[in-house]
């Protein structure tokens, strides 16, 4: 599969300027600093990577670990407040040739990540949306344009195919088995406990991860 051809196609479908084709090729060598809108209370590590041409916005309290990559080459990225993006996690569409060889997938205009979402290390997020309080465990792949609901748990190494919608309170576990988290749905106290735990984790990370916002502004 000719990668360049598919990328060119992608550019034409999204209908933007032609200089994108050159920047899209390799983000590591030819990195344009992405336009950003960062909250002063966000924490973005010095070694995090924010590249692309669309706006990357990060809300207050969110912690982005070193070596996490946020790519806005094809669509803007909006990360809500209180999120954790761990190291080696990738948010954004990086290489579309595998997911979408024909280029007929509808791409999200914006990748929207809700409040208090925890994205663990090694995860690839190409989803259009992740609802609040959702946990995405290590090495998960969320396919392009998929929509993950609120309060979901995606267990380690799961794969959500492109374009799929995962309803609220869904647990994906084991060999892509799914179930509804009825306990969480019916007992709001559990959600409070979980939020409290997330809050504590954020609190620790905010002290541990040195922030270098100025580098990305």
């Amino acid at each position: 599969m000719d990668q360049q051809a598919s990328q060119a196609k992608r550019v034409s479908t999204s209908g933007t300027s032609s200089n994108r084709a050159s920047t899209a090729k390799r983000s590591s060598t030819n990195v344009p600093k992405a336009p950003t809108s960062l909250d002063p209370n966000a924490i973005i590590a010095n070694h995090a990577v924010l590249t692309g041409i669309h706006t990357i916005s990060v809300a207050a309290g969110t912690v982005i670990h070193p070596h996490a990559r946020i790519i806005s080459t094809y669509s803007a990225v909006d990360i809500g407040p209180g999120c954790i993006v761990s190291e080696k996690a990738v948010i954004g569409l990086s290489d579309l040739s595998q997911d979408d060889p024909e280029g007929d997938l509808e791409l999200p205009e914006i990748i929207k990540i809700g409040q208090n979402v925890n994205i663990e290390s090694g995860t690839i997020v190409e989803a259009a949306e992740i609802g609040e309080n959702t946990l995405i465990d290590v090495d998960v792949k969320l396919g392009a344009g998929s929509v993950i609901g609120k309060n979901c748990t995606i267990s380690a190494c799961s794969v959500v195919p492109p374009g799929e919608t995962v309803p609220d309170y869904t647990v994906i576990y084991g060999n892509n088995q799914r179930r509804l988290n009825k306990s969480l749905q019916s007992t709001p106290v559990i959600l409070d406990i979980k939020s409290k735990g997330h809050e504590k984790q954020l609190n620790v990370l905010q002290r541990l991860v040195p922030s270098n916002l100025a580098k990305w502004q």
Binding site: Y173, R179, N181, I190
Partner: peptide
Amino acid sequence: PFCQWSSLE
């Protein structure tokens, strides 16, 4: 901790 089942269910 894995599939989020609980005895509350």
